[in-house]
């Protein structure tokens, strides 16, 4: 019937306008509703990205027009910029320590909450709260108070006769206060872990128990392998987040990255170059290097994932 219909309808060339009309009549409203997103994507994301790629090959001080500089910015970055190296070290240290610790903590709490306890929703909300407050200015200021010389942490330590240092302004500890802050915001990976734990079939544990496997063994042999897709997802998201981390360091160090550049996150250095010293070209180059770095990390994670992530339902 369909064939017949096609055969008896008007010749192909006459049909064309009606196809366009159909697209216009049926799909246009859809595109119209998508329009705000398109405008946002092209105008506020893709456009600025392309222009920043161009700017990364220029010297640009905001007040005068950009001057073409070729690869100068990239050459300087890798050959003659100790602050670039310093900020890269700080960010790498932060990523390497904050991400695994945060994931371990989130998983630990998720395991505790997954034991069918009463008031689960309440606890879940409470633990999620810090993530909602997230990278806010208020939390960063609160952190300054907690880890100051006469702050909460040292008041607590003094109960045991320990006189703690001023954690946030001592270059040996300042970065660790930021790592602790990041771990404290374990809520969103925890929620995802919880959802993942729920999907592990109970009968596996029952079978294991019957065979006499300990809880510990069950965790390593059942829970963790079946949870690897969720671990993988969380690890990638959190790694990207950690690379992008900016607000806490900015607030706690007043935008300086001090003491002694110990909290000079890569993004903070980028901000200083852009808005402190008005080197937009160099800052754009820094941004693209960060993008490349995050992309490499993510690609590496995906490539290795087949060796440790199990997708067998």
């Amino acid at each position: 019937m369909t064939l017949q219909h096609v055969a008896t309808s008007a010749p192909a060339e006459a049909e064309k306008p009606s196809v366009w009309r159909r697209i216009w009549q049926q799909d246009a409203p859809g595109y119209l509703f998508l329009l705000p997103w398109f405008i946002g994507f092209f105008g506020l994301t893709l456009g600025p990205m392309i222009s920043s790629l161009y700017l990364s090959f220029t010297h640009f001080d905001l007040l005068t027009a950009p001057r073409w500089a070729g690869v100068d910015n990239y050459v300087r970055m890798f050959t003659n910029d100790p602050k670039f190296a310093a900020s890269m070290r700080v960010t790498m240290f932060f990523v390497v320590f904050s991400v695994p610790l945060k994931l371990a903590f989130a998983l630990g709490v998720a395991l505790l909450l997954n034991r069918g306890m009463k008031g689960l929703t309440l606890y879940r909300s409470l633990f999620y709260l810090p993530s909602l407050l997230g990278a806010s200015v208020a939390i960063a200021i609160l952190w300054r108070q907690i880890f100051a010389a006469d702050g909460l942490v040292n008041k607590f330590l003094s109960l045991f006769g320990i006189i703690g240092p001023s954690w946030i302004s001592n270059p040996n500890y300042s970065l660790w206060t930021l790592i602790v802050l990041s771990i404290w915001q374990f809520g969103s990976p925890m929620i995802i872990f919880l959802a993942g734990l729920r999907q592990i079939p109970q009968d596996m544990y029952e079978a294991a128990s019957l065979d006499g496997a300990s809880k510990w063994r069950q965790f390593w042999k059942i829970t963790l392998p079946l949870l690897t897709p969720v671990v993988f997802f969380n690890a990638i998201i959190q790694t990207i987040e950690a690379f992008k981390s900016f607000t806490p360091a900015f607030i706690i160090s007043g935008g300086t990255g001090n003491p002694i550049n110990s909290t000079l996150f890569y993004t903070l250095y980028l901000y200083q170059e852009a808005f402190g010293f008005f080197r937009m070209g160099y800052a754009s180059a820094l941004a693209w290097v960060l993008l490349a770095l995050v992309a490499i990390f993510t690609a590496f994670s995906f490539l290795t994932s087949k060796y440790w992530v199990h997708y067998d339902d």
Binding site: A149, P165, S166, I168, S169, N170, G255, T256, N258, P259
Partner: peptide, 14 residues
């Protein structure tokens, strides 16, 4: 002392 001085990040309150 240096770790107290480093708390001064610019704003008058610090």
């Amino acid at each position: 002392a240096p770790d107290a001085q480093a708390l001064d990040t610019g704003p008058l309150e610090t």
